Amino acid sequence: MGRNKAVGPDQIPVEAWRCLGDMGISLLTSLFNKIWTSAKMPEEWRLSEVIPIYKNKGDVQSCSNYRGIKLKELPWCMIFADDIALIARSTEELNSRLEKWREALEDNGLCVSREKNEYLRCDFDKQEIRQNGDEDIRIGERILDPKVSFRYVGSVIHKSGRIDEDVTHRIQAGWMRWRAASGVICDKRIPLKLKGKFYRVAIRPAMLYTSEYWPMTKAQASRVEVVEMRMLRWSSGKTLSDRIPTRVFRADLEVGTIISKLREGRFRWFDHVRRRDRIAPLKRAESIHVEGIRRWRRPMMRWEDRLAKDLIELGLSEDMTSDRKARRTRIRVED
C-alpha cells in the first residue's frame, strides 16, 4: 500500500490501514478469504468515482483526450484501462482478436474507443499484402483507419521497418529538453563543466531513449552527432563562425561523443539478450526465423548487422558476454 493515495467513496485513507499493523493485515486477510471462497464481491466495492485525467496531448476540450481513473472502495486499488497492442499475421486473425477483446471489455463495463484505435500494416511481405489488401480492419461496425506509422511507448514504428522517423522524434525530444533548460544551459555565469554535467544527465538521455535496438546507418548517426554539437556550441556561447574544433568543446564541457554512447547502449542490450534463458520471450523473439528472402538491391541495415560492425571495430566477440567484468571494461566509454 502506497502512501498519499486518493481515497475512495468510503473516505478511508491508506494510512489508516497501515496504522493498524498486524491487526489490519489479519482483518483484510480474513475478508479476502471469505470473498475468495464465496466467489462474491460486496456490492459497495462496485461503487466508484471516475476522475478524468488529461493525457497531455490533443485538444483539452475534447473528452476523448482524457483517461478515466476509477477510485473504488478497495483500500489501495486504482483501476484504469491502458493501451493494448495486438499483433497478427493476417487480417482475419486480427479482426478475430479485436472482436474477442471488444466483447471481453464491454462485458466488464469498459468501452473500446472507436475513434482512437488505429492499425499499421507492415509491408515486409508483399504477397501477404496483395492477398489481404482489400480487407478492412474493424471494431464492431466501425472500420479503422490505416496508419503509415504510429507512436507506441516512446518509439515511432514505421510500416517499412525504418527508423528515420524514430530518430527524428528522439532528436525533437532532445531539443525540447534543451529549450526547457536553456535558462541554465545558456547562462554565462554557470561553469562549463556544470553545463556539461547537466547535458549528460538531463538532455542526452532523452535522445538516447530506446536507441539500444536502432540499426543506425552512418547518415542517421551523423544527424544525431550534428544536433549534439549544435547544443554544445550554444551552451558554450560559440558558433560555427568562431571555427573552434569539436574536441575543444568536448574537453571544456567534459562530454564524450554521443555515437560512442549509442554503441555502448547497443552492447549493453546485446549482453542482456545473450544472458537470458532460452525460454524467455526476449530470447525466443531473437530466434524467430522470417520466411522468404531479402529484397533485391541494397537491403536495409539490420540490428544484427550494425552490431557485427561494432564488434569488428572494437575487436570483440560474442563469447565475451560470459565475462561481465572484461566486457564492461572494453565497451565502457567516457560520459
Rank of each mutant, 00 (worst) to 15 (best):
R3P: 04
A6G: 03
A6M: 13
A6I: 14
D10L: 07
D10I: 04
Q11V: 10
W17T: 02
W17G: 00
R18G: 08
M23W: 13
S26R: 10
S30Y: 12
N33Y: 10
I35Q: 04
T37I: 02
S38N: 12
A39D: 06
W45Q: 03
R46L: 12
I51F: 03
P52Y: 00
P52T: 04
P52H: 03
I53T: 13
I53Y: 02
Y54D: 00
S62M: 11
N65M: 06
R67E: 15
W76T: 15
W76V: 14
C77N: 09
M78N: 12
D82R: 12
D82V: 06
D83E: 10
I84M: 08
R89N: 13
T91H: 04
E93A: 03
L94K: 07
N95T: 01
S96C: 08
L98C: 05
E99D: 14
E99Y: 10
E99H: 13
K100G: 00
R102S: 06
R102A: 01
R102E: 05
E103Q: 14
D107R: 14
R114E: 15
E115L: 13
K116N: 14
N117I: 07
Y119E: 08
D123R: 10
D123N: 14
F124N: 13
F124I: 05
D125F: 05
K126P: 04
Q127C: 04
Q127G: 01
Q127A: 08
R130A: 08
V148S: 09
S149C: 11
R151Q: 09
S155R: 00
V156T: 07
I157R: 01
H158M: 13
K159E: 07
K159S: 12
K159T: 00
S160H: 10
S160M: 06
S160W: 02
T168N: 11
H169E: 11
S182G: 03
I185S: 05
R189F: 02
L192A: 04
K193R: 15
K193N: 04
K195Y: 07
G196S: 01
Y199N: 01
R200W: 05
A202L: 15
I203Y: 01
I203A: 01
I203M: 00
L208M: 15
S211T: 04
E212S: 10
Y213R: 12
M216W: 02
K218A: 13
R223T: 11
V227D: 06
E228H: 10
L232K: 00
W234V: 07
W234T: 04
L240W: 07
S241D: 13
I244N: 01
I244A: 03
P245G: 03
P245L: 05
T246E: 12
F249H: 15
V255N: 03
G256R: 02
T257S: 12
I259V: 15
L262Y: 08
G265S: 09
R266E: 13
F267I: 06
W269Q: 03
R274L: 13
R275E: 06
R278Y: 05
R278V: 06
P281W: 06
P281Y: 06
L282S: 12
K283R: 14
K283M: 07
E286C: 05
E286N: 05
I288M: 11
G292K: 05
I293P: 00
I293S: 09
R294M: 02
P299M: 07
M300E: 12
M301C: 12
M301Y: 00
R302H: 08
W303Q: 02
R306Q: 02
K309W: 10
D310N: 09
L311C: 03
E313V: 03
L316S: 08
A326V: 01
R330T: 07
R332W: 07
R332L: 09
